[in-house]
Design a protein around this nucleic acid. Structure first.
Length: 884
RNA sequence: GCGAGGAUGGCGGAACUGGCAGACGCGCUGGACUUAGGAUCCAGUCCCGAAAGGGGUGGGGGUUCAACUCCCCCUCCUCGCACCA
């Protein structure tokens, strides 16, 4: 993995020995502990980049992530903040294990070797981490707290076991969380196997208990990108509706004659709907094939064998294929009927492939007249369609069903004389899903259907009525499901639970943590059951309660558990009594600036919010959101392909820095595009920033002895010196604004521009010139820290690190030149520019503008209607053109 | 289908609150220095035009003295969700 090379065409070369310079200062920073975290922060600033799964060498995509964080970390430090900028390893996971299976080494060895490589790469890039706070999730000192937190969750009923149909990756041989299934396939980029469904009993975290808070608090995350906030809202997927109780008609009846079964205790079939105003249009029910009720209904029926065969066939398809849009719906009539509570009608119950067991109650009321899916299904199986919402104005004067004698309602106009005939089920080609007026709906005929305003409309009125009648109740449904956290793999944190025949499932007592992952394992191959179940010394244990023989839970935790609280561990990384102390957590968190890839929007970034809320409820924290400001950045591609370690495509940090240095790498990824966008790595990028570094180097080589950090006497500045001093402050102003505004590309551009000014400046023995060089060193510092530190020490050999100095401030009296350029437009088109003293009055400028030959020639023969002057900005002369 | 974001030279990208479109960089053209150039420096580089001038920020309308920026309609691209009842 370390044989990776840079591309061959070498296009630029450094004028100085970046290798030596960078090594010197990396060692200096480390030796002098320049970036050590202060133990008791006064003005804290916590900048964090999402930690990494260590898989060997880093590519420029990684480098960009860490450099973005490093810039703000170094900058804030120079502003006097107590910066916490730590790093660590998300070290549990499948690649280590898969490599172990393939090559026979131990996952631990592979992992530690990868960590070594990653860390070396990060040091090569000059990322200013405080390595004293390094964390590693695969060591017992860390994962015992995963286990401890699991036990706290369990105590509160937030960790529980249940049997469910789960996502099974046949390749990884483990279950996966919903968040790890992408378009029906495994989320791991090297796997991508089609996910199957398996019925298994597994551990879950009850994240749905926090669904509402997770949703509500998105409002307050105003430092997060809107895209991520939207994605989370969609993912949580709140929908308000009613759960309506249908009743199962007696099996012996089963006609469609409308007679109601008078069973004293009918089986209740609750269904969730967001459109109770269409209840009168229900003509069938549809049940998920994997719902428990499906088999129950078939039981003993003559249709049972056929029905079971149908279910078996449908469930062979993955949920993704079953539910994918555009596919034809399939159903099977169970032979049973349900009774619609609002009108007593009996409707047939089908099993339908498009219904999901995991959403709502796993059964739906189908309204083919007003739902497209139901419509298609009804047409296919010849089920009646009822219209219970007529378009506004249809028939102009809808007649309630009772009067007209037609279920669909009628129109007071007769037949063809009606200007807008009402919908007719027999001629409809699609469901009518627009707004309209309720009809054929008993007491609600004439009510405006849908949501309407302030509860005045059908949905709200029918819901109220249903609740009064005891037929249903308001219900909020979420798309978010409980988080499945057990995995049947080896390389993870063991779940601290014991299964005892006598006592049931017993938590491992806290004082017996950690449950150490057995090291002495040679066969990591998954076989559909947990690897640890075959490790006898681990699996067989005694019950903590009764002391009798028992088994350890053989599953390990999803690695997203490890990363759901790691950000707090950095505040107190060596605590061996608790995952972290509350005091340390409160001193450093929430995170001031969190940086990572957008791909975590609906995974990690929801999980760590969830954990934060639970940890707050446990009393471990006194805040409920882990991070105020989130920056996501796009992917880095090379020749159109996204860089990826697992696929071994990319430009690699090691070889690149060996040739061009870390500062060039940093500037290249920062200058290419604003941080929040994706970027394409090109070799031309390197050419540009290398030239810039060389030009900086050269101007200091030529004028090094003039560098000064003492401000010039601004009282007597004039001419070119004054202008240069003003340019300096303009540059400084922009660098500060753009760095704080997360616009690193323009912050660098401002410095390039200023360097161009310096190259054009005479006389170079001016103290202003020397001062500009000194100031440039500071501006470079966050972006090209090695070169900056080198230049600083050349100028101030006795000083300490540049990063212990204060970032300069703008001299606000010198931001504007003494003259200003005023563009002059005629009817909005640029015709001239005026160079006037800043002190010029409005009248003077207006007169100068009108007197300008370019303006007067345009205005000749026309009437000047208006002269607009925008102070300090421009003049626009409005003339009335003569008609020719 | 729903939601979010976007479209600016040959390329990556700039542009404050509506006020000089194209900063900065790459590339390209010409020149200088050089044994050499993948080094460096100078000049030029949105398009048409010899110039005057005209046109120009995905397309079409609108508001305004003035629109990349605001409003309406459309096209395309990227991302997320997607038969969610």
């Amino acid at each position: 993995m370390s044989e990776r090379k840079t591309e061959d065409p070498k296009r630029a070369r450094l004028a100085y020995d970046a290798g030596a310079v960078e090594r010197r200062w990396q060692e200096y920073w480390s030796e002098h502990r320049v970036f050590a975290t202060s133990p008791e922060p006064e003005r804290k600033y916590y900048v964090l980049e999402m930690f990494i799964y260590p898989s060997g060498d880093l590519h420029m995509g990684h480098a960009r992530n860490y450099t973005i964080g490093d810039v703000i970390g170094r900058y804030r430090k120079m502003q006097g903040y107590d910066v916490l900028h730590p790093f660590g390893w998300d070290a549990f996971g499948l690649p280590a294990e898969n490599s172990a299976i393939a090559h026979g080494n131990h996952p631990r060895d592979w992992t530690f070797k990868s960590i070594g490589l990653c860390k070396h790469n990060l040091d090569l890039m000059g990322i200013a981490y405080d390595w004293d706070r390094e964390i590693n999730t695969c060591v017992p000192e860390y994962y015992r707290w995963d286990q401890w937190l699991f036990l706290q969750f369990h105590k509160r009923g937030l960790a529980y076991r249940k049997e469910a149909l789960l996502n099974w990756c046949p390749n990884c041989q483990t279950v996966l969380a919903n968040e790890q299934v992408v378009d029906g396939h495994c989320y791991r980029s090297t796997c991508r196997a089609a996910i199957e469904k398996r019925k298994m009993t597994q551990w879950f975290f009850r994240i749905t208990d926090y669904a509402e808070e997770l949703l509500q608090d998105i409002e307050r995350l105003d430092g997060w990108p809107d895209s991520v906030r939207t994605m989370q809202r969609n993912w949580i997927g709140r929908s308000e509706g009613v759960e309506v109780d249908f009743a199962l008609a007696d099996a012996s009846e089963g006609g469609t004659d409308g007679s109601v079964s008078q069973d004293a205790n009918p089986r209740v079939l609750p269904v969730f709907t967001t459109r109770p105003d269409t209840l009168w249009g229900v003509t069938f029910m549809a049940l998920a094939p994997d719902a428990l009720l499906a088999e129950e209904l078939l039981d003993g029926s003559e249709r049972e064998p056929e029905g079971r065969e149908f279910i078996r066939r449908v469930l062979l398809k993955s949920e993704f294929d079953r539910v994918a849009e555009g596919l034809e719906k399939e159903g099977f009539f169970t032979g049973r009927y349900a009774v619609n509570p609002v009108n007593g009608e009996q409707v047939p119950i089908y099993i339908a492939d498009f219904v999901l067991a995991s959403y709502g109650t796993g059964m739906i009321m189908a309204v083919p007249g007003h739902d497209q899916r139901d419509f298609e299904f009804a047409r296919k199986y010849d089920i009646p369609i009822k219209v219970v919402i007529q378009p506004p104005g249809a028939g102009h004067d809808p007649i309630p069903a009772k009067e007209s004698g037609s279920a669909a309602g009628g129109c007071r106009f007769s037949g063809s004389s009606c200007p807008k005939p009402p919908l007719d089920p027999s001629t409809m080609t699609a469901a009518y899903t627009e707004d309209g007026v309720m009809t054929g709906s008993g007491p609600f005929d004439g009510t405006v259907a849908g949501k309407g305003e302030q509860g005045a409309s059908g949905i709200e009125k029918v819901t109220d009525w249903l609740e009064q009648q005891g037929m249903g109740r308001r219900k909020v449904n979420y798309r978010l499901k409980d988080w499945l956290i057990s995995r049947q793999r080896y390389w993870g944190a063991p779940i601290p639970m014991v299964h005892c025949d006598r006592c049931g499932i017993v938590p491992v007592p806290e004082d017996q943590l950690p449950v150490v992952l057995p090291a002495d394992v040679t066969d990591f191959k998954p076989r559909g059951t947990s690897v640890l179940a075959s490790v006898k010394e681990f699996y067989e244990t005694s019950c903590p309660k009764c002391g009798g023989p028992a088994f350890r839970d053989p599953d390990t935790m999803d690695t997203f558990v490890n990363s759901s609280w790691y950000m707090v561990r950095y505040a107190d990384p060596h605590n061996d009594r608790l995952p972290f102390s509350k005091a340390a957590a409160d001193a450093w968190l929430p995170i001031d600036e969190y940086i990572g890839g957008i791909e975590h929007a609906t995974g990690h970034l929801i999980f760590f919010r969830f954990f934060t809320k639970v940890m707050a409820d446990i009393g471990l924290l006194s805040f409920r959101e882990p991070c105020q400001v989130l920056h996501t950045h796009g992917m880095v591609a090379h020749n159109g392909v996204t860089m990826s370690s697992s696929k071994n495509v990319g430009v690699w940090v090691g070889p690149f820095t060996a040739e061009y240095g870390a500062d060039a790498a940093r500037l290249a990824v920062l200058f290419a595009a604003p941080p929040d966008k994706g970027m394409d790595w090109t070799d031309d990028l390197v050419t540009g920033v290398t030239r810039f570094l060389n030009r900086v180097w050269r101007i200091f080589e030529e004028h090094g002895e003039r560098v000064t950090f003492d401000p010039p006497d601004t009282g007597r500045l004039a001419g070119a010196e004054r202008d240069l001093y003003i340019r300096l402050n303009q540059m400084l102003h922009k660098v500060i604004a753009d760095t704080e505004g997360f616009q690193y590309n323009t912050a660098i551009a401002a410095q390039m521009e200023f360097l161009n000014d310096l190259y054009g400046f005479e006389p170079t023995d001016s103290p202003v010139f020397g001062f500009c060089l000194g100031r440039l060193v500071f501006c470079l510092a966050p972006f090209a820290p090695h070169l900056a530190e080198e230049l600083w020490h050349r100028a101030r050999p006795d000083a300490g690190s540049l990063f212990d100095e204060r970032f300069p401030q703008v001299d606000a009296d010198f931001l504007l030149f003494e003259t200003m350029t005023i563009p002059v437009q005629v009817n909005g088109k640029l015709r001239a520019r005026l160079e006037v003293p800043r002190t010029a009055t409005e009248d003077e400028i207006r007169n100068l503008a009108l007197a300008d030959p370019a303006v007067s020639s345009q205005a000749a023969g026309s009437k000047v209607c208006k002269v607009i002057y925008v102070k300090g900005r421009l003049v626009n002369v409005v003339i009335a053109r003569q008609r020719r």
